[in-house]
Computed example of a mutant assay.
Amino acid sequence: MKNNTVKMEARPDTERRPQWTELIIALVVAVLVYGVGIVLLGLFPAPTPALEGLVGLLFSGAAPILVFAIVVLSRIRKLPAFGVRRVSPRWLLIAVLLAAACFAVIFTFDTVIQHLFPGVDDSQDILRAAASGGILALVGTIFFGAVLTPLGEELLFRGILTRFFERWGGGVAIVVSALIFAVWHGINLVFPSALLVGLVNGWLMVRTKSIWPGVVLHIVYNSAFLTLYSFS
């Protein structure tokens, strides 16, 4: 009995990552959760654009957290298997610096695109309405869009998807999960920013085996853009 315990504790990280069962459960639950959510949002629309943006951000953060919780409870119950583990503070600082770099790159890219193609739709009008709807709306926008949503999306896309695809190598895990993350945000002007953040956060996950650097980067990045939206 003692020897078996030692062997279980000595299993390499590769044997504890999410398996096909967790991936299938995540896909099925995501379809159900997002499908029901989209239907309910359509049946009961918010009375104002600002409130519509807040409700949308709340849903975008709560839905992936719910999917993640169901996946964890379905089979693997140890959170470190999904990257929910402690990491050196040095990596959190690196994440902040990388967030600033990503913001600078995407802000420059968006500015150039808006200059070359005036009036191009970036699909962020609802977020701008929420961020500029007053101080309470801005606080709600920052919390839902720059705290809850980054946490939920990192748990789902990095904690489950990146960790799952690591079985075929770090490079594959980073690129494939980033592409899925970007497509999930839509084929529009947001796609490049989602792809960049997905690639960087995928690299942070593969490098540290922890979701927290990616969560920090995502929080800083989203906070910067949502604060910018409050002035537009």
Rank of each mutant, 00 (worst) to 15 (best):
Leu97Phe: 10
Pro47Arg: 12
Arg128Phe: 05
Leu98Arg: 05
Gly37Ser: 13
Ala81Arg: 07
Leu148Cys: 01
Gly133Val: 01
Val6Leu: 15
Phe82Asn: 00
Ala30Gln: 07
Val112Gly: 01
Leu66Phe: 12
Leu127Asp: 14
Ile94Val: 12
Leu116Ser: 11
Ile174Leu: 02
Phe165Thr: 09
Thr108Lys: 01
His185Thr: 00
Gly56Phe: 01
Val39Pro: 06
Val215Ala: 00
Asn4Asp: 15
Pro192Val: 02
Ser232Trp: 14
Val216Cys: 06
Arg86Asp: 05
Gly61Ser: 04
Pro118Trp: 06
Ile211Asn: 02
Ser223Pro: 06
Ala26Thr: 05
Val105Met: 10
Val176Gly: 03
Ser177Trp: 04
Val96Gln: 01
Arg90Cys: 00
Val72Arg: 03
Val120Ala: 14
Thr141Asn: 10
Leu98Met: 13
Phe82Val: 00
Leu43Trp: 14
Arg77Asn: 14
Ile38Leu: 14
Phe157Asn: 08
His115Lys: 15
Arg167Thr: 01
Ser177His: 11
Phe191Met: 08
Leu97Asn: 10
Arg207Gly: 00
Ala100Ile: 13
Leu136Ser: 11
Pro64Asp: 06
Ile219Cys: 13
Thr14Gln: 15
Phe109Asn: 02
Thr21Val: 13
Leu228Ile: 12
Trp203Thr: 06
Phe164Asn: 03
Val55Ala: 11
Gly140Ser: 06
Asn4Val: 10
Ser210Cys: 05
Leu23Glu: 03
Gly145Ala: 12
Asp121Val: 05
Ser223His: 10
Glu15Phe: 12
Arg86Met: 08
Pro18Asn: 03
Ser74Leu: 07
Arg90Asp: 04
Leu27Glu: 12
Ala130Glu: 09
Gly133Asp: 01
Leu27Phe: 14
Ile25Arg: 07
Val183His: 13
Tyr34Gln: 12
Gly171Trp: 11
Arg77Ile: 08
Ser177Thr: 09
Ala81Pro: 08
Ala99Cys: 08
Leu79Thr: 11
Phe165Gln: 07
Arg17Leu: 09
Leu204Ser: 01
Val147Tyr: 10
Gly198Ser: 01
Gly37Val: 08
Ser88Leu: 00
Arg207Phe: 00
Leu93Asp: 08
Val200Tyr: 02
Gly186Ser: 08
Val216Gln: 03
Trp184His: 15
Ile187His: 09
Arg158Cys: 05
Arg11Asn: 14
Val29Gly: 01
Leu228Arg: 09
Leu217Phe: 07
Ala69Glu: 08
Leu23Gly: 05
Ile126Glu: 12
Thr149Ser: 15
Arg207Met: 00
Asp13Glu: 15
Asp121Phe: 04
Ile24Met: 02
Glu15Leu: 13
Ala99Phe: 04
Leu161Met: 13
Gln114Glu: 15
Ser232Glu: 14
Phe143Glu: 09
Thr48Ser: 07
Lys78Cys: 11
Glu22Pro: 04
Glu154Gly: 01
Ala137His: 10
Trp168Gly: 00
Gln124Thr: 14
Asp122Val: 00
